[in-house]
Amino acid sequence: MVVVTAGTHEDEVPPADASAESDRAAAADEHESPRPATYYHLARAVLYREFLVFVRYPANAVGGIVISLFFFGVLFYGGQLLAGQALADSLEGIIVGYFLWTLSVGAYSAVSNDIGSEVQWGTLERHIMTPFGFAPVALLKGVAKVVRTFLTSAVVLVVMLLLTGTRLSLDPLTVVTVAGLAITSVLGLGFAAGGVTVLYKRIGNWLNLLQFGFIVLISAPVLDAPWTRFLPLAHGSALLQRAMVDGVRLWEFSAGELGLLVAVAVGYLLGGYVVFHYATRRARRLGVLGDY
């Protein structure tokens, strides 16, 4: 990480930085000295950008919330007509599942669409060409998206509860941790899809259909088919149901259950990142990185 700009004279060496710099600063009539950015600066910059876009363009967020609620309305009232009491019995489960689905879709499409957009704008390269390395930057951007998604999904959740008069256990620590880890695996899928989009620009849109596959994962029969716990979302969804419907607290889950939740999250995130890494490397070889 060191670019050796060789020193000149002995006497110039140690103060070279300071003196030459102050000369320049003086010449420019100001007193500044560029300092290296830390990961703190990076995190702040990425989160602040997300915040700005969120605040400045609330229509996007509000639109997402309205659409989510509309679909839930259709599901709820339509379901009532069709299933009546049967639906009311499983309503809590449906609300939790729907909450997790909006979170998943938010996290997934945020990452994969974001990568697609940044490819178009020519800003992705600038994130790849960063001295921080792409991985931390991409991860922070992903986290920023997840934070944003949590906010909108929380609104959807509250409205759903009010609308249906349902009560759920909402221990913030438990819900945020379990749901957060559950959708971390989706974040990984988002990165993988983003990588494929970098290589094959048109496929990106098709990959958005994966979002409907999340419904299957969220409602996976983890009790009947335990192997499904290793799929993204499935195990996290089961834990979230128990947390929110049965009121199980985070520390009341067994270490094995929590361990598997973390393992699945980290596993898919790493897997997604590896796919992204190799996809961009292949894009470099093919020369398609930065084609607009």
Binding site: M1, V2, V3, V4, T5, A6, G7, T8, H9, E12, V13, P14, A16, D17, A20, E21, D23, R24, S33, P34, R35, P36, A37, P131, F132
Partner: peptide
């Protein structure tokens, strides 16, 4: 660059390397 005393700046410290010394020397 073998006589260079040290990397004068970390790579992340962009925007800063004073190049005035080339002129001075």
């Amino acid at each position: 660059g073998d006589t260079a005393p040290a990397g004068r700046r970390p790579a992340t410290d962009a925007g800063d390397a004073p190049r005035d010394d080339t002129d001075e020397a």
